[in-house]
């Protein structure tokens, strides 16, 4: 009998474990997705929609063989502090390197860049993506700073096209900036 087998690796950094999403992680995600903190990532949503979104995130691993990891501190392995990985819904041509820190109390400690420094080499070298963007809403200065710190740069042409009529972000407000990652650019 045929079986589809999906492997979700665990990545490790100095302070973090990046692992497959579990049912227990849903509450951290829902708290984020129902709060103002998610305003730059299509939120806030109501609780039921957030619940569906969490399961949908897990589903990307089935379709693509890659997706978002849940990150937890090594000292608190049961608590998901954010989602980090490759986000690639059907409507997007290119994979996206994405990050969300779920709870403000984990801000300012360098966890996002630490997680992405593990994710990005895995994406290029293990998964073998050959192109990647990050989509960052206008006004999300913290995320733009992360993109720059990771060696990405604003792709003005792609940003213009994607926000124009017929582009993939034409219906989205605010304006979505596209940062481009290139292999070898991670600093």
């Amino acid at each position: 009998m045929n079986t589809l087998t999906v492997h979700i690796p665990t990545l490790e950094t100095e302070r973090l474990i990046l692992r497959a999403p579990t049912l227990q992680d849903a509450e951290s995600f829902i708290a984020f997705k129902t709060s103002e903190r998610s305003k730059f990532t299509n939120g806030p949503l109501d609780r039921a929609a957030a619940q569906v979104s969490f399961s949908a995130i897990a589903g990307m691993w089935v379709f693509r063989g890659y997706g978002l990891f849940m990150a937890a501190l090594k000292t608190e392995p049961e608590i998901a502090i954010g989602g980090f990985g490759i986000f690639h819904p059907a409507k997007h041509e290119e994979p996206e390197f994405g990050w969300s820190l779920y709870d403000a109390r984990y801000e300012g400690k360098g966890y996002v860049t630490e997680a992405m420094r593990a994710v990005i080499p895995w994406a290029w070298d293990v998964i073998g993506v050959d192109t990647a963007q990050s989509h960052i809403d206008e006004g999300n200065a913290a995320s733009a700073a992360v993109a720059i710190a990771l060696g990405a740069s604003l792709d003005a042409d792609a940003t213009k096209t994607a926000n124009a009529p017929g582009g993939e972000f034409e219906d989205e407000a605010p304006f979505v900036n596209i940062y481009r990652h290139t292999k070898g650019a991670l600093k």
Binding site: V6, I8, A20, P21, T22, L23, A26, V52, S53, F54, S55, A56, I57, A58, G59, M60, W61, V62, F63, P89
Partner: peptide, 9 residues
């Protein structure tokens, strides 16, 4: 995606 994710979770 939710349906696929259900298998994962």
């Amino acid at each position: 995606s939710q349906e696929a994710g259900h298998w994962v979770l």
